[in-house]
Design a binder for these strands. Structure first.
Length: 157
DNA sequence: GCCAACGTTGGC
DNA sequence: GCCAACGTTGGC
């Protein structure tokens, strides 16, 4: 059984359209520098897990499609590169601190499921995303939440 | 651009 | 180990 996740990105930096255009429609999900999110990437995100692809700081904010995990947690190499904005002088290849996964594009929603819309659906009110102050860039979602959002994304309103 | 919420850092 | 200062996230 796969697990289900929501991952946030700023589309100026990397959008679902960028993912579609990427080689093999696959990318490494680098740059997560929060310990809670790191722990999930390292320990919990498995190959075959499914991802809701969320755009933040944009219009419209919301879930724009889905992706699939094709490679589970492995050290984020940007932490070792002094020129990278993600460089971490306290990390070393022997003792990596930060992890990433590889994800592959699955579908881009015909109609993004906006944050505004998510807030109106009773069955989704438990989502971490909707809780006040919740900022994690990698979050678990339930299969029920996943199914509902994917259905909403596939349906034109 | 504002600002609330939260995480991290570092002096003590 | 406390906690003030600072930095970041992310909706609006």
């Amino acid at each position: 059984m796969p697990n289900y996740w929501l991952m946030k990105t700023e589309p100026n930096t990397f959008s679902i359209q960028d993912l579609e255009k990427a080689p093999h429609q696959t990318t490494c999900w680098e740059g997560v520098r929060n310990y809670q999110a790191r722990n999930m990437l390292r320990d919990d995100v498995k190959k075959g897990d499914m991802v809701l692809f969320y755009h933040s700081n944009t219009e419209p904010v919301g879930v724009h499609g889905t992706a699939k995990v094709v490679k589970p947690g492995y050290p984020d190499h940007f932490q070792f590169e002094p020129k990278s904005k993600y460089y971490d002088p306290k990390a070393s290849p022997e003792r990596p601190r930060w992890f990433m996964v590889d994800i592959k594009h699955q579908q881009t929603f015909q109609q993004p499921v906006t944050l505004q819309t998510l807030r109106t659906v009773d069955a989704l009110q438990d989502m971490k995303l909707l809780q006040k102050g919740q900022r994690l860039s990698v979050q678990p979602v339930t299969k029920t939440q996943w199914d509902l959002i994917v259905k909403m994304g596939a349906t034109r309103s």
